[in-house]
């Protein structure tokens, strides 16, 4: 290609002059052809996503209308019965509730800790910051399966000490079966969840902090602003954009929590920690026991998954609206 990149994107004019009016219809084909290499570069990603992410989602939509154990092709058409069944299933709604509790406790707590740590570790005068960063990030690289096995061993199997931790302090009457007691199990799962993925948010925040020009702090300091002032009038506002992305990502991740719960409690005891994805999993793959004596119900699982997706989309829309309103109010008060 010897053309001087006709497809190159122009940087929007800072003066805000409007972009050239849309080209005529005939121009479209030319523009497509001119951008040929752009499409070629896009293709590997687009093909993979279309084939292995988008297509399967749509393909599995069809299952929602069948009662099907996942073998052969679905044949027993049941219409909307699967949706009705899920909507009337108290275990499903319990799972939705647990998932939301998980997300709404985990996200704020984890982000707060991550932000505080990021502020501390971002200080260039702090020695061993690389070391500490590594320490707090390391849980992220471990698989949920290993985390589950080790935590379960520690907490219940071999953790008499862990169980009796508070027994002597008079806080509780006796030994607690942390993952086996319906009152504590979800809280413990959340705590382990916070521990496990804090590292991601830590580095996101650190990355965000690094984009704040040091001159801003210098200027503020010269003006006599203390660290607290600096935090509230420079750090927080400058982090807002990144922060929104971090919050959204954290919620997306939390709403899809699965491995950790599956390996720690399997949703038990008696559904006390069942989240939506373990609920779907149990439907799609039958019971957890050995050789799977329980018939899977793929149609029901797909319907539950679809309904949950709808819920999430509604929630995301609400979130976007709320953030936008918040942003507008901020902008309004700044004027």
């Amino acid at each position: 290609m010897t053309l001087s990149a006709p497809g190159l994107r122009r940087r929007p004019d800072p003066a805000g002059t409007p972009e050239p009016a849309p080209v005529r219809r005939t121009g479209l084909r030319r523009r497509v052809r001119a951008a040929g290499w752009s499409y070629a570069y896009l293709a590997p990603m687009a093909v993979l996503v279309l084939a292995f992410v988008v297509y399967p989602i749509f393909a599995s939509l069809g299952y929602t209308f069948y009662q099907w154990n996942g073998i052969g092709s679905p044949s027993n058409f049941v219409g909307l019965a699967n949706f009705r069944q899920v909507l009337h299933d108290s275990i499903f709604w319990g799972a939705v509730e647990h998932t939301f509790v998980y997300a709404f406790v985990l996200v704020p707590v984890q982000l707060l800790i991550a932000l505080m740590l990021a502020l501390v570790l971002n200080n260039p005068r702090l020695r061993f910051r690389m070391f500490f960063r590594t320490v707090y990030f390391v849980p992220v690289v471990t698989s949920a399966a290993v985390v589950g096995v080790v935590m379960q061993l520690m907490l219940s199997n071999f953790g008499d000490a862990a169980g009796s931790l508070f027994a002597g302090t008079g806080l509780t009457g006796s030994h607690i079966d942390w993952l086996g007691d319906p009152h504590t199990a979800l809280a413990v799962v959340i705590a382990i969840g916070i521990w496990h993925t804090l590292g991601y948010n830590l580095v996101y925040f650190m990355a965000g902090l690094q984009t704040i020009p040091a001159e801003l702090y210098e200027a503020a300091r010269i003006d006599g602003a203390g660290p607290v002032r600096c935090f509230f009038s420079i750090t927080l506002p400058m982090l807002r954009q990144v922060g929104v992305v971090i919050v959204v990502l954290a919620f997306i991740g939390s709403f899809q929590v699965f491995d950790l719960v599956q390996v720690l409690t399997g949703g038990g005891p008696y559904f006390a920690t069942e989240v939506v994805n373990t609920y779907i999993y149990h439907l799609a793959f039958g019971g957890g026991s050995g050789s799977g004596a329980v018939q899977p119900d793929v149609g029901l699982a797909s319907a539950a998954s679809f309904l949950y997706g709808l819920l999430l989309i509604l929630f995301s829309a609400a979130q976007v609206l709320a953030l936008r309103r918040l942003g507008r109010r901020r902008a309004g008060s700044a004027l």
Partner: peptide
């Protein structure tokens, strides 16, 4: 045994 519910079968 108080940890029975969360103990694995093997343990």
């Amino acid at each position: 045994y108080p940890d029975s519910l969360s103990l694995s079968d093997e343990a």
